[in-house]
């Protein structure tokens, strides 16, 4: 079985973010980057599937971005992916462009299972995976919290609003976007980190994949306005509950 996992490299969420002079992008100069957390669930699930299938299965990791993105690909390789594809790109892209570039890079490779994160931690569009499935013409399941391969099909569970879960059964080829709770990603071991050095990473230039025009635009970017301070309720439990109800009613929240 040919498996693909798509990952994004995002700024460390503990960084202090600043908006660039132009006002439409984040200043990247002194940021540390890491693999998007949701994509780590995707990598882990992909590696587990590969390990379960054993011989004959092949796992590819793909990422798009500037040179630094190689680090994210290497982490996925150290976690157990077999090879990497790096779409070299320095432009800022919207989800449709990203999905189109990935589509162009993988459309002839007949991947039967594709994993992505549910969304990225930095921009949080939650669209790239779905758009990619649409372009490939395959089924997609979002917010997957449980995944099981059986024969040539999959039993999956997805998270819905209000704590509900939905069970689904479907056949390959399919794409799954992975949600928190699906698994506990492994730490890459030192021997695997060193072995990953020998694994192949194919580089493709984004320009050679004919990126389409963007369908959305960032017009401005600014830090959220500072809101009023938190209010601490005091007194015994009953009094605090009464106070809380009164406050919520006053703000028309209940």
């Amino acid at each position: 079985m040919k498996i693909l996992v798509c990952v994004k490299q995002v700024p460390d969420m503990e960084s202090r973010f600043q908006v660039q002079a132009g006002g439409t992008a984040i200043e990247e100069a002194d940021l540390a980057f890491r693999v998007n957390e949701y994509d780590e669930f995707a990598i882990e699930e992909a590696v587990r599937l590969k390990e379960k299938l054993g011989e004959g299965s092949e796992l590819t990791v793909l990422s798009l971005g500037p040179q630094r993105v190689a680090e994210a690909i290497k982490k996925a390789l150290a976690m157990g992916c077999d090879q990497g594809i790096h779409i070299l790109d320095t432009a800022s892209r919207d989800p449709y462009q990203v999905a189109s570039l990935i589509y162009q890079a993988v459309k002839d490779q007949d991947f039967e299972v594709i994993f992505t994160g549910m969304q990225s931690q930095d921009l949080g569009y939650a669209q790239t995976g779905l758009l990619l499935a649409e372009l490939l013409g395959i089924e997609a399941v979002t917010t997957v919290v449980s995944f099981c391969q059986e024969g040539d099909g999959f039993l999956v569970q997805r998270e819905l609003e209000g704590g509900q879960r939905m069970n689904l059964k479907l056949q390959a080829p399919a794409l799954f976007t992975c949600q928190l709770g699906l698994n506990q990603p492994r730490y890459p071991t030192l021997p695997n980190i060193m072995k990953a050095k020998k694994k192949k990473i194919t580089q493709l230039e984004a320009a050679s994949l004919a990126p389409p025009a963007a369908r959305s635009q960032t017009t401005s970017l600014r830090p959220p306005a500072k809101k009023g301070q938190a209010k601490f309720l005091e007194g015994d439990l009953g009094a605090m509950a009464d106070q809380l109800v009164a406050e919520l009613k006053a703000k028309s929240l209940i």
């Binding site: 190689a70 982490k75 150290a78 730490y187 071991t189 980190i193 050095k197």
Partner: peptide
């Protein structure tokens, strides 16, 4: 190198 950073990250996670 990328490998050194990854080894640092694995250690940090543990």
């Amino acid at each position: 190198s990328d490998e050194q950073k990854q080894i640092r990250d694995t250690t940090r996670d543990l």
